[in-house]
């Protein structure tokens, strides 16, 4: 079954907020070879002008992918996850993510394009903090191959 193009415009969330912790930031920094001590030590982060340990540039994906999962598992959208390839990704940061942040995510299906047996599903996940202030916008396109 192909992806349902009528799903464009659907939104999911916000669900339970994601609590950003120092240990998770360090773990992610280690995984992507982000070498600054500001990802590991509160003191180093303060020296850089941040109130606490600051997340690497793509850390927002940890939160965004959880939100995007709601799209993938929605039977009315019809994405077969075993046929998915990641096509593109973009992060626009309104402010850096800092340890202690409680981040809420709402994911929107912005676009679905179909051609040549492939559906390109573009989602936009808006991350905001406890006060509702925008933190990051994460745009992601998945290429879903239809069954033949």
């Amino acid at each position: 079954m192909p992806v349902n193009i009528d799903a464009v415009g659907r939104a999911y969330g916000p669900h339970e907020p994601y609590e950003v912790t120092r240990i998770k930031i360090r773990e992610f920094a280690d995984a992507v070879d982000a070498r600054s001590f500001a990802h590991r030590s509160e003191e180093a982060a303060r020296a850089e002008g941040y109130p606490d340990v600051v997340a690497p540039t793509t850390f927002a994906v940890v939160i965004a992918q959880q939100a995007e999962f709601h799209v993938v598992v929605d039977p009315e959208v019809g994405v077969d996850f075993s046929r998915v390839v990641h096509a593109d990704e973009r992060f626009t940061h309104h402010r850096p993510i800092i340890a202690g942040d409680l981040i809420s995510a709402t994911v929107h299906i912005d676009d679905i394009k179909q051609r040549g047996g492939i559906s390109m599903v573009t989602t936009r996940t808006e991350l905001s903090d406890e006060d509702g202030t925008p933190v990051s916008t994460v745009t992601s396109t998945l290429a879903v191959r239809e069954e033949v």
């Binding site: 982000a34 070498r35 600054s36 500001a38 990802h39 982060a45 850089e48 941040y50 600051v54 690497p56 540039t57 793509t58 390839v85 990641h86 096509a87 593109d88 990704e89 973009r90 992060f91 626009t92 940061h93 850096p96 745009t139």
Partner: peptide
């Protein structure tokens, strides 16, 4: 980021 300093990459995009 190693050049830019942590928190200073305000936008990042790519295609795979």
């Amino acid at each position: 980021e190693e050049w830019a300093g942590p928190g200073n990459v305000v936008d990042l995009q790519t295609r795979f």
